[in-house]
Design a protein around this nucleic acid. Sequence first.
DNA 1: CGTAAATATATTGATATCAACTCTTTTGGC
DNA 2: GCCAAAAGAGTTGATATCAATATATTTACG
Lengths: 152, 152
Amino acid sequence: MSKSSNDSSVPTRLIHDTCLCLHTQRAARALARRFDEAFRPLGLTSGQFSLLNAMNRETPRSMGEVAAILAMDRTTLTANLKPLERQGLMKITVDAQDRRSRKLILTAAGKKLLRAAAPVWKRTHAALEREAAAAMSGIDIPNLRAGLRAIA
Amino acid sequence: MSKSSNDSSVPTRLIHDTCLCLHTQRAARALARRFDEAFRPLGLTSGQFSLLNAMNRETPRSMGEVAAILAMDRTTLTANLKPLERQGLMKITVDAQDRRSRKLILTAAGKKLLRAAAPVWKRTHAALEREAAAAMSGIDIPNLRAGLRAIA
DNA sequence: CGTAAATATATTGATATCAACTCTTTTGGC
DNA sequence: GCCAAAAGAGTTGATATCAATATATTTACG
Protein backbone atom coordinates (compact mmCIF):
# COMPACT_ATOMS: atom_id res chain seq x y z
CA MET A 1 0.00 0.00 0.00
CA SER A 2 1.13 3.53 -0.71
CA LYS A 3 0.92 6.28 1.86
CA SER A 4 -2.58 7.62 2.26
CA SER A 5 -2.10 11.36 1.72
CA ASN A 6 0.64 11.69 -0.90
CA ASP A 7 0.20 9.03 -3.54
CA SER A 8 0.92 11.34 -6.47
CA SER A 9 3.59 10.16 -8.84
CA VAL A 10 5.38 13.47 -8.19
CA PRO A 11 5.65 14.03 -4.45
CA THR A 12 5.15 17.48 -2.99
CA ARG A 13 8.55 17.34 -1.35
CA LEU A 14 10.35 16.69 -4.62
CA ILE A 15 8.54 19.57 -6.30
CA HIS A 16 9.33 21.91 -3.45
CA ASP A 17 13.01 21.00 -3.49
CA THR A 18 13.40 20.93 -7.25
CA CYS A 19 11.23 23.66 -8.78
CA LEU A 20 13.31 26.35 -10.44
CA CYS A 21 10.23 28.55 -10.67
CA LEU A 22 9.84 28.51 -6.89
CA HIS A 23 13.54 28.97 -6.24
CA THR A 24 13.66 31.93 -8.57
CA GLN A 25 10.52 33.54 -7.11
CA ARG A 26 11.93 33.12 -3.61
CA ALA A 27 15.20 34.77 -4.57
CA ALA A 28 13.40 37.50 -6.51
CA ARG A 29 11.27 38.42 -3.51
CA ALA A 30 14.21 38.42 -1.13
CA LEU A 31 16.39 40.51 -3.42
CA ALA A 32 13.60 42.96 -4.20
CA ARG A 33 13.02 43.54 -0.48
CA ARG A 34 16.73 44.03 0.09
CA PHE A 35 17.29 46.53 -2.71
CA ASP A 36 13.97 48.26 -2.02
CA GLU A 37 15.19 48.93 1.48
CA ALA A 38 18.54 50.23 0.27
CA PHE A 39 16.94 52.59 -2.25
CA ARG A 40 14.16 53.73 0.09
CA PRO A 41 15.95 56.93 1.21
CA LEU A 42 15.94 57.91 -2.46
CA GLY A 43 12.22 57.20 -2.88
CA LEU A 44 13.03 54.45 -5.38
CA THR A 45 12.25 50.74 -5.62
CA SER A 46 14.57 48.08 -7.02
CA GLY A 47 12.36 47.67 -10.07
CA GLN A 48 12.26 51.40 -10.71
CA PHE A 49 16.05 51.50 -10.49
CA SER A 50 16.40 48.76 -13.11
CA LEU A 51 13.83 50.49 -15.28
CA LEU A 52 15.51 53.90 -15.09
CA ASN A 53 18.79 52.18 -15.91
CA ALA A 54 17.30 50.59 -19.00
CA MET A 55 16.23 54.05 -20.18
CA ASN A 56 19.56 55.75 -19.48
CA ARG A 57 21.11 56.02 -22.92
CA GLU A 58 21.93 58.49 -25.63
CA THR A 59 19.60 56.89 -28.14
CA PRO A 60 16.17 56.50 -26.49
CA ARG A 61 14.58 53.08 -26.44
CA SER A 62 10.97 52.25 -27.28
CA MET A 63 8.54 50.56 -24.89
CA GLY A 64 8.86 47.23 -26.66
CA GLU A 65 12.64 47.35 -26.47
CA VAL A 66 12.66 48.14 -22.76
CA ALA A 67 10.01 45.51 -22.05
CA ALA A 68 12.14 42.90 -23.84
CA ILE A 69 15.29 43.92 -21.95
CA LEU A 70 13.50 43.51 -18.64
CA ALA A 71 11.61 40.36 -19.77
CA MET A 72 8.48 42.23 -18.77
CA ASP A 73 5.03 42.32 -20.32
CA ARG A 74 4.45 45.47 -22.35
CA THR A 75 1.38 46.33 -20.32
CA THR A 76 3.34 46.00 -17.10
CA LEU A 77 5.85 48.49 -18.43
CA THR A 78 3.05 50.93 -19.24
CA ALA A 79 1.90 50.70 -15.63
CA ASN A 80 5.41 50.99 -14.20
CA LEU A 81 6.15 54.14 -16.15
CA LYS A 82 3.23 56.04 -14.62
CA PRO A 83 4.74 56.81 -11.22
CA LEU A 84 8.09 57.65 -12.82
CA GLU A 85 6.49 60.03 -15.28
CA ARG A 86 4.36 61.58 -12.55
CA GLN A 87 7.50 62.21 -10.49
CA GLY A 88 9.14 63.89 -13.47
CA LEU A 89 11.91 61.30 -13.77
CA MET A 90 11.18 60.47 -17.41
CA LYS A 91 8.85 61.36 -20.23
CA ILE A 92 7.12 59.47 -22.99
CA THR A 93 7.24 60.97 -26.46
CA VAL A 94 5.78 59.84 -29.76
CA ASP A 95 8.38 58.53 -32.18
CA ALA A 96 8.36 60.89 -35.18
CA GLN A 97 9.46 58.07 -37.51
CA ASP A 98 6.75 55.66 -36.35
CA ARG A 99 3.84 57.30 -34.62
CA ARG A 100 2.74 54.00 -33.04
CA SER A 101 6.00 53.85 -31.14
CA ARG A 102 7.02 55.76 -28.00
CA LYS A 103 10.48 56.96 -27.07
CA LEU A 104 11.28 56.72 -23.37
CA ILE A 105 13.51 59.58 -22.26
CA LEU A 106 15.06 60.26 -18.86
CA THR A 107 14.73 63.82 -17.61
CA ALA A 108 17.57 65.67 -15.88
CA ALA A 109 15.94 64.76 -12.58
CA GLY A 110 15.88 61.10 -13.58
CA LYS A 111 19.56 61.13 -14.52
CA LYS A 112 20.43 62.90 -11.30
CA LEU A 113 18.53 60.34 -9.24
CA LEU A 114 20.29 57.50 -11.07
CA ARG A 115 23.67 59.04 -10.26
CA ALA A 116 22.68 59.24 -6.60
CA ALA A 117 21.47 55.63 -6.66
CA ALA A 118 24.58 54.15 -8.29
CA PRO A 119 26.76 54.08 -5.15
CA VAL A 120 23.86 52.63 -3.16
CA TRP A 121 23.57 49.87 -5.71
CA LYS A 122 27.31 49.23 -5.65
CA ARG A 123 27.39 48.99 -1.86
CA THR A 124 24.29 46.79 -1.64
CA HIS A 125 25.40 44.46 -4.40
CA ALA A 126 28.86 44.05 -2.88
CA ALA A 127 27.30 43.11 0.46
CA LEU A 128 25.00 40.64 -1.30
CA GLU A 129 27.94 38.96 -3.02
CA ARG A 130 29.82 38.71 0.26
CA GLU A 131 26.85 37.07 1.98
CA ALA A 132 26.24 34.73 -0.93
CA ALA A 133 29.85 33.60 -0.71
CA ALA A 134 29.39 32.98 3.00
CA ALA A 135 26.17 31.01 2.40
CA MET A 136 27.61 28.89 -0.40
CA SER A 137 31.31 28.25 -0.41
CA GLY A 138 32.73 28.44 -3.90
CA ILE A 139 29.70 30.21 -5.36
CA ASP A 140 30.38 31.37 -8.90
CA ILE A 141 28.42 34.59 -9.37
CA PRO A 142 29.06 34.98 -13.13
CA ASN A 143 27.94 31.40 -13.59
CA LEU A 144 24.79 32.12 -11.55
CA ARG A 145 24.02 35.09 -13.78
CA ALA A 146 24.51 32.96 -16.89
CA GLY A 147 22.17 30.35 -15.48
CA LEU A 148 19.52 32.98 -14.79
CA ARG A 149 19.84 34.20 -18.35
CA ALA A 150 19.48 30.65 -19.62
CA ILE A 151 16.14 30.16 -17.90
CA ALA A 152 14.72 33.64 -18.63
CA MET B 1 37.00 65.83 -19.09
CA SER B 2 34.66 62.95 -18.50
CA LYS B 3 31.85 62.04 -20.83
CA SER B 4 28.88 64.37 -20.56
CA SER B 5 26.03 61.94 -19.97
CA ASN B 6 27.46 59.07 -17.95
CA ASP B 7 30.08 60.35 -15.57
CA SER B 8 28.95 58.20 -12.67
CA SER B 9 31.60 56.05 -11.09
CA VAL B 10 29.33 53.05 -11.76
CA PRO B 11 28.25 53.04 -15.40
CA THR B 12 24.72 52.08 -16.34
CA ARG B 13 25.99 49.35 -18.63
CA LEU B 14 27.96 47.67 -15.85
CA ILE B 15 24.95 47.73 -13.54
CA HIS B 16 22.69 46.31 -16.21
CA ASP B 17 25.08 43.48 -16.99
CA THR B 18 26.03 42.71 -13.40
CA CYS B 19 22.99 43.21 -11.17
CA LEU B 20 21.81 39.95 -9.65
CA CYS B 21 18.58 41.63 -8.58
CA LEU B 22 17.74 42.46 -12.20
CA HIS B 23 18.80 39.04 -13.49
CA THR B 24 16.67 37.31 -10.87
CA GLN B 25 13.64 39.52 -11.51
CA ARG B 26 13.93 38.88 -15.25
CA ALA B 27 14.08 35.14 -14.75
CA ALA B 28 11.27 35.26 -12.19
CA ARG B 29 8.96 37.08 -14.59
CA ALA B 30 9.76 34.76 -17.48
CA LEU B 31 9.30 31.60 -15.42
CA ALA B 32 6.08 32.87 -13.84
CA ARG B 33 4.62 33.54 -17.28
CA ARG B 34 5.68 30.12 -18.48
CA PHE B 35 4.24 28.14 -15.56
CA ASP B 36 1.16 30.37 -15.38
CA GLU B 37 0.43 29.39 -18.95
CA ALA B 38 0.95 25.70 -18.26
CA PHE B 39 -1.34 25.74 -15.21
CA ARG B 40 -4.01 27.94 -16.82
CA PRO B 41 -6.26 25.05 -17.87
CA LEU B 42 -6.42 24.17 -14.17
CA GLY B 43 -7.30 27.73 -13.15
CA LEU B 44 -4.06 27.98 -11.20
CA THR B 45 -1.08 30.33 -11.26
CA SER B 46 2.52 29.34 -10.65
CA GLY B 47 2.53 31.12 -7.31
CA GLN B 48 -0.68 29.43 -6.22
CA PHE B 49 0.81 26.07 -7.15
CA SER B 50 3.87 26.71 -4.97
CA LEU B 51 1.66 27.93 -2.17
CA LEU B 52 -0.65 24.91 -2.28
CA ASN B 53 2.43 22.71 -2.30
CA ALA B 54 3.78 24.40 0.81
CA MET B 55 0.50 23.63 2.59
CA ASN B 56 0.30 20.00 1.47
CA ARG B 57 1.40 18.11 4.56
CA GLU B 58 0.09 15.96 7.37
CA THR B 59 0.99 18.48 10.05
CA PRO B 60 -0.47 21.85 9.04
CA ARG B 61 1.85 24.83 8.88
CA SER B 62 1.18 28.29 10.29
CA MET B 63 1.16 31.48 8.23
CA GLY B 64 4.58 32.50 9.49
CA GLU B 65 6.07 29.14 8.57
CA VAL B 66 4.65 29.18 5.05
CA ALA B 67 5.70 32.80 4.54
CA ALA B 68 9.25 31.91 5.57
CA ILE B 69 9.34 28.88 3.26
CA LEU B 70 8.30 31.03 0.33
CA ALA B 71 10.48 34.01 1.40
CA MET B 72 7.31 36.03 1.26
CA ASP B 73 6.03 38.86 3.45
CA ARG B 74 3.40 37.69 5.94
CA THR B 75 0.90 40.24 4.64
CA THR B 76 1.44 39.03 1.07
CA LEU B 77 0.58 35.53 2.19
CA THR B 78 -2.64 36.80 3.80
CA ALA B 79 -3.60 38.34 0.46
CA ASN B 80 -2.62 35.27 -1.56
CA LEU B 81 -4.72 32.95 0.57
CA LYS B 82 -7.94 34.85 -0.15
CA PRO B 83 -8.62 33.54 -3.67
CA LEU B 84 -7.59 30.01 -2.63
CA GLU B 85 -9.92 30.04 0.36
CA ARG B 86 -12.73 31.55 -1.71
CA GLN B 87 -12.32 28.72 -4.23
CA GLY B 88 -12.52 26.17 -1.44
CA LEU B 89 -8.99 24.86 -1.96
CA MET B 90 -7.87 25.48 1.63
CA LYS B 91 -9.13 26.79 4.91
CA ILE B 92 -7.67 28.87 7.71
CA THR B 93 -8.26 27.69 11.26
CA VAL B 94 -7.25 29.12 14.60
CA ASP B 95 -4.51 27.14 16.33
CA ALA B 96 -5.99 25.77 19.54
CA GLN B 97 -2.59 25.78 21.25
CA ASP B 98 -1.84 29.42 20.36
CA ARG B 99 -4.84 31.46 19.43
CA ARG B 100 -2.70 34.09 17.70
CA SER B 101 -1.56 31.49 15.19
CA ARG B 102 -3.43 30.09 12.16
CA LYS B 103 -3.20 26.61 10.75
CA LEU B 104 -3.37 26.42 6.96
CA ILE B 105 -5.15 23.28 5.80
CA LEU B 106 -5.73 21.98 2.28
CA THR B 107 -9.25 20.78 1.54
CA ALA B 108 -9.98 17.64 -0.45
CA ALA B 109 -10.52 19.87 -3.49
CA GLY B 110 -7.13 21.47 -2.93
CA LYS B 111 -5.38 18.11 -2.72
CA LYS B 112 -7.19 16.90 -5.81
CA LEU B 113 -6.14 19.99 -7.76
CA LEU B 114 -2.54 19.51 -6.66
CA ARG B 115 -2.58 15.93 -7.88
CA ALA B 116 -3.89 17.12 -11.25
CA ALA B 117 -1.24 19.83 -11.41
CA ALA B 118 1.73 17.58 -10.59
CA PRO B 119 2.13 16.05 -14.06
CA VAL B 120 1.76 19.50 -15.63
CA TRP B 121 4.58 20.72 -13.42
CA LYS B 122 6.74 17.72 -14.27
CA ARG B 123 6.27 18.20 -18.01
CA THR B 124 6.82 21.96 -17.89
CA HIS B 125 9.89 21.73 -15.70
CA ALA B 126 11.45 19.04 -17.87
CA ALA B 127 10.95 21.24 -20.95
CA LEU B 128 12.48 24.17 -19.09
CA GLU B 129 15.55 22.15 -18.18
CA ARG B 130 15.95 21.00 -21.77
CA GLU B 131 15.79 24.55 -23.08
CA ALA B 132 18.14 25.82 -20.41
CA ALA B 133 20.65 23.18 -21.44
CA ALA B 134 20.29 24.30 -25.04
CA ALA B 135 20.76 27.98 -24.08
CA MET B 136 23.78 27.36 -21.88
CA SER B 137 25.95 24.40 -22.64
CA GLY B 138 27.05 22.65 -19.51
CA ILE B 139 24.47 24.35 -17.30
CA ASP B 140 24.42 22.79 -13.84
CA ILE B 141 20.82 22.99 -12.61
CA PRO B 142 21.47 21.80 -9.03
CA ASN B 143 24.24 24.39 -8.79
CA LEU B 144 21.88 27.07 -10.09
CA ARG B 145 19.34 26.12 -7.42
CA ALA B 146 22.02 26.30 -4.74
CA GLY B 147 23.05 29.74 -5.98
CA LEU B 148 19.45 30.93 -5.83
CA ARG B 149 19.20 29.67 -2.27
CA ALA B 150 22.42 31.46 -1.38
CA ILE B 151 21.07 34.84 -2.47
CA ALA B 152 17.53 34.41 -1.09
C1' DC C 1 -4.70 53.79 -53.98
C1' DG C 2 -7.15 50.96 -50.53
C1' DT C 3 -7.91 47.78 -47.44
C1' DA C 4 -6.59 43.71 -44.57
C1' DA C 5 -2.95 42.16 -41.68
C1' DA C 6 0.61 43.23 -38.69
C1' DT C 7 2.72 46.21 -35.23
C1' DA C 8 3.03 49.31 -31.04
C1' DT C 9 0.86 50.75 -27.30
C1' DA C 10 -3.11 51.61 -23.76
C1' DT C 11 -7.03 50.07 -20.68
C1' DT C 12 -9.40 46.98 -17.50
C1' DG C 13 -9.75 43.54 -14.04
C1' DA C 14 -7.67 40.16 -11.09
C1' DT C 15 -3.91 38.75 -8.35
C1' DA C 16 0.86 39.76 -6.18
C1' DT C 17 4.01 42.51 -3.37
C1' DC C 18 5.41 45.02 0.65
C1' DA C 19 5.58 48.97 4.31
C1' DA C 20 3.13 51.11 7.90
C1' DC C 21 -0.15 50.48 11.08
C1' DT C 22 -3.55 48.05 14.10
C1' DC C 23 -5.58 44.24 16.75
C1' DT C 24 -5.30 40.11 19.53
C1' DT C 25 -2.95 36.85 22.27
C1' DT C 26 0.96 35.13 24.68
C1' DT C 27 5.07 35.58 27.42
C1' DG C 28 8.12 37.47 31.05
C1' DG C 29 9.33 40.26 34.86
C1' DC C 30 7.86 41.54 39.22
C1' DG D 1 -1.98 37.89 39.24
C1' DC D 2 -0.60 42.39 36.66
C1' DC D 3 1.21 44.77 33.15
C1' DA D 4 4.58 45.77 29.63
C1' DA D 5 6.89 43.69 25.82
C1' DA D 6 6.85 40.45 22.23
C1' DA D 7 4.72 37.60 18.72
C1' DG D 8 1.21 36.31 15.13
C1' DA D 9 -1.82 37.92 11.98
C1' DG D 10 -5.12 41.41 9.47
C1' DT D 11 -5.95 46.00 6.99
C1' DT D 12 -4.84 49.84 3.99
C1' DG D 13 -2.58 52.09 0.30
C1' DA D 14 0.72 52.12 -3.36
C1' DT D 15 3.06 49.74 -6.93
C1' DA D 16 3.80 45.34 -9.86
C1' DT D 17 2.20 41.64 -12.87
C1' DC D 18 -0.17 39.76 -16.74
C1' DA D 19 -4.33 38.17 -19.83
C1' DA D 20 -7.89 39.85 -22.52
C1' DT D 21 -9.27 43.40 -25.07
C1' DA D 22 -9.24 47.85 -27.53
C1' DT D 23 -7.14 51.69 -30.28
C1' DA D 24 -3.98 53.83 -33.42
C1' DT D 25 -0.56 53.44 -36.98
C1' DT D 26 2.10 51.23 -40.47
C1' DT D 27 2.93 47.76 -43.89
C1' DA D 28 1.80 44.71 -47.63
C1' DC D 29 -0.84 42.96 -51.10
C1' DG D 30 -3.76 43.36 -54.83
